[in-house]
């Protein structure tokens, strides 16, 4: 900014202040949305955890459902949950980088994605990764209905052999400052660790395995998608809040420095004027 005048600096200060007002407002909005998203995610967590463990235990004791097919030649599909809006700090970059690494490790035939959120869609489109299906416009409050629609498409792709394994990649919310990208195999359902105490005895399925799996497995996919949407949404709001907070702080620092510079410039101008006056008066003597 060397050589810029007083007016120029004033204009810049004003501009940064304006931006700061926006980042402050966005922080407040994100904080309010975070509270809601966090409580929704936490309330849904118990159910999702239970259905995950029950389903895993159930599949280890009974087989023979099309959704449990272990296929030899594997084309993996990745369900990647991102946001549709930016300005959320490293939120989208983190999950996308994580998913991209998982896909590189995946092997098998060229993996594809089910992109949830515009950021993920754009990312994979740009990198020419095959997209099975995209789901945009989830909004700030994901509904179970939306999760069902997504689950429906995933189940269809799996049953039609367009994809042989489905992995779910999303951002797990821990607390407003901690959330991390993670993924697990959604289909075929993974079996539990062998040291689970319930594994020692056998299970009875009533009326029979087929009937139980027919209801349980699609519901399992729906619930886990729903839970992933809620966890990701809470993480997104938390990331945005943090990003906007640090943006506001950066603006403070920027303003502080520019005010200092403005004062220096003004002082320099005054000194110069006085010097001129004095030398002018001197010359008249």
């Amino acid at each position: 900014m060397a050589g810029s005048g007083l007016k120029e600096v004033d204009r810049r200060i004003k501009s940064v202040k304006n931006t700061q007002q926006i980042t402050r407002a966005m922080k407040m909005v994100a904080a309010a949305k975070l509270r809601k998203a966090e409580s929704r995610a936490k309330q849904a967590r118990a159910y999702a955890e239970e259905i995950l463990s029950i389903t895993r235990r159930a599949v280890s004791k009974g087989t023979g459902h099309p959704l449990l097919d272990q296929r030899d030649v594997v084309r993996k599909g990745f369900v990647v949950v991102t946001s549709s809006r930016g300005l959320a700090g490293p939120y989208n970059a983190n999950i996308l980088r994580y998913a991209a690494v998982r896909m590189q490790e995946a092997g098998g035939k060229d993996p594809g994605v089910f992109a949830i959120g515009r950021k993920g869609r754009d990312y994979f489109l740009h990198r020419r990764v095959p997209i099975f299906q995209e789901f945009l416009g989830i909004g700030d409050e994901p509904t179970f209905h939306q999760a069902q629609a997504i689950a429906h498409e995933i189940l269809r792709h799996f049953l039609e052999h367009q994809v042989d394994e489905v992995w779910l990649s999303y951002t797990q919310f821990i607390n407003p400052l901690t959330h991390h990208a993670q993924s697990f195999r959604l289909l075929p359902v993974e079996e539990p660790a062998a040291d689970d105490p319930s594994m020692r005895r056998s299970y009875v399925f009533e009326p029979d395995t087929q009937t139980v799996f027919k209801d349980l497995l699609p519901h399992y996919v729906e619930v886990l998608i729903y839970s992933a949407l809620l966890e990701s949404k809470a993480s997104e709001q938390a990331a945005r809040m943090t990003a906007m907070d640090s943006a506001s702080k950066n603006a403070d620092e920027l303003i502080r420095r520019m005010v200092l510079m403005r004062n220096r410039l003004r002082q320099a101008a005054i000194t110069k004027e006085i010097a001129e006056l004095v030398s002018g008066a001197e010359a008249l003597k």
Binding site: V204, E206, P207, L216
Partner: peptide, 19 residues
């Protein structure tokens, strides 16, 4: 009440999954 009818569960019931 499961799809098969009403059932009572006491401790040490056999392991069971039912809609």
């Amino acid at each position: 009440r499961s799809t098969e009818g009403e059932i009572g569960i006491l401790a040490h019931h056999m392991q069971l999954i039912t809609p």
